[in-house]
Design a protein around this nucleic acid. Structure first.
Length: 422
DNA sequence: TCTGGGGTCCTAGGACCC
DNA sequence: TCTGGGGTCCTAGGACCC
């Protein structure tokens, strides 16, 4: 049977969701989608990047991921609104509910994108996609593009054609006419670095890439060159995966409101990060052996350093301790604007092998941290705070809420990264 | 008016073992 | 003493995605 795959992509997702919310719940008349506008982080907190923009803003060359300051320079009248991740999660779930009326073979690819395997579900793939597109607009008030083809790659490429509120097909027979003329940068998995290498080889369009000999691509780009050549020819056998694979790693990071030069403050940030990371590990029944600390300095230079532990752990204090040792070995004391903890080497067996010289009474600490987890789950993140996060006068420590979320690819899981534990 | 935060995968070199 | 080859693990760095 011929495969039928849809890729559903919410048009200007965060911005559309803000626009609909303001129209329906705040009784406003202004539709953010019709004026130059964007969702952006707080410049004061140094989170100032564009997370989504309206189509009118796009005409001013405002780009997702660029600094808010740059966007304002290009488009002085730009209306900026702060992000509201809770709203986006709700909107995303509402979309998924409608998609699930058409098939249960759904892969949520990010908060605003999903693949659907519609094989055997429709005699008229494009027509059914039109019905779905109309239903989303009618019931939810925002619009989607739907790409229709026989595999994920082509469906994804098709959904990126003319926007908004459109259905496009990209069957194998249409590749030459609809995809090969596009600049190579538009191809999935061709980023900045690949574009530059390809340009040096005289390859500017997807069609040129499709015809380049394997040996040339392998010599310059190794296996990635062969992957994108397959994509340029519309070749992709990957299945629609309905449940996300288990995490290979867990990490959190934050940009600090001011450069950090004080070791004590840096370690306090690490403790906060260790708490959020290890709470996610415990919630997932995962343990890790490798702790990595990453830093970005005032000059935006990036460094990281990792250590491997003898025994897997999910304890805040062990991860924090290892993170501190990483920081000591890594940091020369240059002012920092960003810190992160990433853990890898995941094990999912809950039994911990007790080392003979295990210094920590694991079970005792584990029970204590689990108790805090469940209190926070029931009564909110603020129910318990560490003493070290409180300033001497009993005032809260001058931290900001650092788990901002973002242009997230995160799948539906307990959403610890959104909440700040401080 | 300087550029967030969450991931995955690949490559390459060195250590270490057989 | 000098010569191998293959495998795994660890670490760092880079590229890509949303």
């Amino acid at each position: 049977m011929k495969r039928v795959i849809y890729h559903v992509d919410v048009n200007s997702a965060f911005l559309s969701w803000e626009a609909v919310y303001r129209l329906h719940h705040l009784g406003g008349r202004l539709d953010l989608r019709e004026i130059p506008s964007a969702v952006g982080g707080d410049q004061e907190k140094r989170h100032g990047i564009i997370l989504a923009k309206s189509i009118p803003a796009k005409r001013y060359k405002v780009r997702t991921g660029e600094p808010v300051a740059d966007a304002k320079r290009k488009c002085p009248g730009l209306v900026l609104v702060p992000p509201n991740y809770e709203l986006y999660n709700r909107s995303s779930r509402a979309l998924l509910r409608i998609l699930s009326e058409y098939t249960d073979q759904i892969e949520q690819f990010s908060i605003d994108e999903a693949f659907m395997d519609m094989t055997g579900c429709t005699e008229d793939p494009a027509g059914t996609a039109e019905k779905l597109r109309e239903q989303v607009e009618r019931e939810l008030g925002f619009t989607v593009n739907i790409g229709v083809s026989c595999n994920r790659l082509l469906a994804k490429m098709a959904s990126d054609f003319k926007k908004p509120n459109r259905v496009h097909t990209l069957w194998p027979g249409e590749i030459g006419e609809k995809m090969w003329e596009l600049p190579v940068r538009d191809l999935f998995y061709v980023g900045h670095a690949s574009e530059r290498k390809l340009k040096n080889l005289g390859i500017c369009t997807i069609g040129q890439l499709a015809r380049t000999p394997d040996a040339v691509l392998y010599a310059h780009m190794k296996s990635h060159g062969l992957l994108i050549k397959d994509y340029a020819n519309g070749i992709d056998e990957s299945p629609v995966v309905t449940s996300p694979p288990p995490n290979k790693g867990y990490g959190n990071s934050l940009t600090t409101p001011r450069d950090v030069t004080d070791r004590g403050l840096a370690k306090l940030y690490l403790l906060s990060l260790a708490e959020t990371v290890s709470a996610r590990l415990r919630a997932d029944g995962a343990m890790i052996r490798v702790v990595e600390v990453s830093i970005r300095d005032y000059d935006l230079r990036f460094f990281h350093h990792q250590r491997t532990m003898a025994t897997p752990t999910d304890l805040t204090m062990e991860i924090y301790g290892e993170a501190c040792r990483c920081l000591e070995e890594l940091w020369t004391g240059v002012p920092l604007r960003h810190l992160g903890i990433h853990t890898t080497g995941v094990t999912r067996t809950l039994e911990r092998q007790l080392g003979f010289f295990d210094a920590v009474d694991y079970d005792k600490y584990r029970r204590a941290e689990e108790a805090v987890d469940s209190l926070r789950k029931r009564y909110g993140q603020d129910i318990i705070k560490r003493g070290s996060f409180l300033a001497p006068q009993g005032k809260a420590h001058p931290f900001v809420d650092h788990m901002g979320g973002g242009i997230s690819r995160e799948k539906r899981r307990p959403d610890y990264s959104r909440e700040m534990i401080l």
